[in-house]
């Protein structure tokens, strides 16, 4: 008995430093929308420039990573690359891969670009900025430093910026192809009729919206809308049938 208690105690003491403290992320996809993104100084493989010079030419997607990430950053970048290639869109835009880690240098970003074979893809710009805190504050991005693992705990974030410098879209967490399609529509100022919430527990909607085609398709909810009229017709029909025996020609009189 005593051995078991001691074992558990040792286990608990041993594991505890390695457990990741629950971090509360304050990010939300609705926050900061249509706010102007700070005009950062960007140091990239193409040289130094202001962020506004970039977005004035074409809308941009900012992918927020750090090179020493052992977590989500690399799979996330690869997934983003896959989605962009799958879409094979004609839309013009740039993807600015920006590090939020002050330790990252331009050489680190260049290596990242080379190792992940994105150096041949003209949409991709890998960069750092001395103004990273300004950007973090503007979008409420607060990576937590885990000193045991020497890693940042952070959400994966994509920020869509249109040609006027407005944050027109934010995607937080893992994204699928439809999310990227919506993001591209947003940064190109195309009207998006619906942003379906990522909920699997809404079983009835009036319609489903496909961002790829921009078309709506009727869904089960529309039948629910018709249900009262159908039920009424059934009730009236039953009453009429039940009362048929009472009806003879010329029975009803004023």
């Amino acid at each position: 008995m005593l051995k078991s208690i001691l074992s558990l105690l040792i286990l608990w003491i041993g594991i505890r430093p390695y457990t990741i403290n629950a971090v509360e992320y304050n990010l939300s996809e609705e926050q900061e929308l249509y706010q102007t993104i700070p005009n950062l100084t960007i140091q990239s493989t193409f040289g130094e420039f202001q962020l506004s010079e970039l977005y004035h030419q074409q809308p941009i997607i900012i992918a927020y990573i750090f090179t020493r990430c052992s977590g989500i950053c690399y799979p996330y970048l690869l997934q983003l690359n896959d989605h962009i290639q799958q879409l094979n869109t004609q839309k013009k835009f740039k993807i600015l891969v920006l590090s939020f880690d002050p330790r990252d240098q331009l050489a680190d970003m260049q290596n990242l670009q080379k190792n992940y074979l994105m150096n041949t893809q003209k949409e991709w710009i890998f960069a750092i900025t001395p103004d990273i805190q300004k950007l973090n504050s503007s979008i409420h991005f607060k990576p937590e430093w885990n000193k045991i693992q020497e890693q940042y705990d952070h959400e994966s974030v994509l920020i869509g910026v249109n040609t006027e410098g407005y944050i027109s879209s934010k995607k937080i967490g893992t994204t699928d192809l439809k999310d990227i399609q919506l993001l591209l529509k947003d940064i190109h100022n195309e009207f998006v009729i619906s942003y379906p919430l990522k909920m699997t527990n809404t079983i009835m909607s009036c319609f489903t919206y496909d961002p790829a085609t921009g078309k709506k398709k009727p869904a089960l909810g529309l039948l629910i809308l018709l249900l009262p009229a159908v039920l009424t017709a059934i009730i009236v029909g039953i009453i009429v049938l039940k009362n048929k025996k009472y009806h003879h020609p010329n029975r009803a009189r004023l």
């Binding site: 009036c206 909810g221 009262p228």
Partner: peptide
Amino acid sequence: VCLLSAVVLLVLFFAEYFSNGAYSNDPLL
């Protein structure tokens, strides 16, 4: 017709209420 629509509406409300978050309604519907 409209009282039956109220029945449908209340069923959907109660379904969400008693689902304890397992089910949510479509706001447009």
